[in-house]
Design a protein around this nucleic acid. Structure first.
Lengths: 75, 75
DNA sequence: CTGTGACTTTCAGTCCGTC
DNA sequence: CGACGGACTGAAAGTCACA
């Protein structure tokens, strides 16, 4: 699948990957904790998914970070 | 329609309304500038819509604010 | 452990209105 | 000007087998 050309989506993707790694979690663990599918998390990190706020909230909660953290670098 | 029970959606709703008012724009003007539908903007402000990141990016751009501003108060 | 294509179901997002 | 409803279309949500 092709990655989306939205700057916000790509920023979210990078931060998600960064924060998940920092937390020492695998995509699979994050998926489990957030109640999302492993392949969906994968798609979000690659910037090929355009998640809704409800999905954003789920991963932020699972990572134990504030939502703003997932958007750092978005101007 | 019923309002969503997502904290992030409600936070976004409040901030959107606040920032739009501050900018002195009507919902219709914001809709036009962002390329979204008038009724959709209304739904977002009432917290009955669950926007995607692409839509969030559109309204932030139209309002001339950083994305983080739309999530102020979300912990 | 992660990427990916294909797929079905649900809902984001539009457009027509009324009050 | 804004809340709200109905009907619609395209895209997001959610899942799977396989690389």
């Amino acid at each position: 699948m092709e990655s989306l050309d939205s700057f916000l989506v790509q920023t979210f993707a990078r931060n998600l990957k960064r924060l998940r790694s920092k937390a020492g979690m695998s995509q699979e663990e994050l998926a489990l904790k957030s109640g999302l599918d492993r392949t969906y998390v994968s798609g979000c990190e690659r910037g090929v998914r355009n998640p809704s706020l409800v999905s954003v909230e789920k991963v932020a909660s699972a990572l134990g970070v504030r939502v703003e953290e997932l958007f750092v670098g978005a101007s």
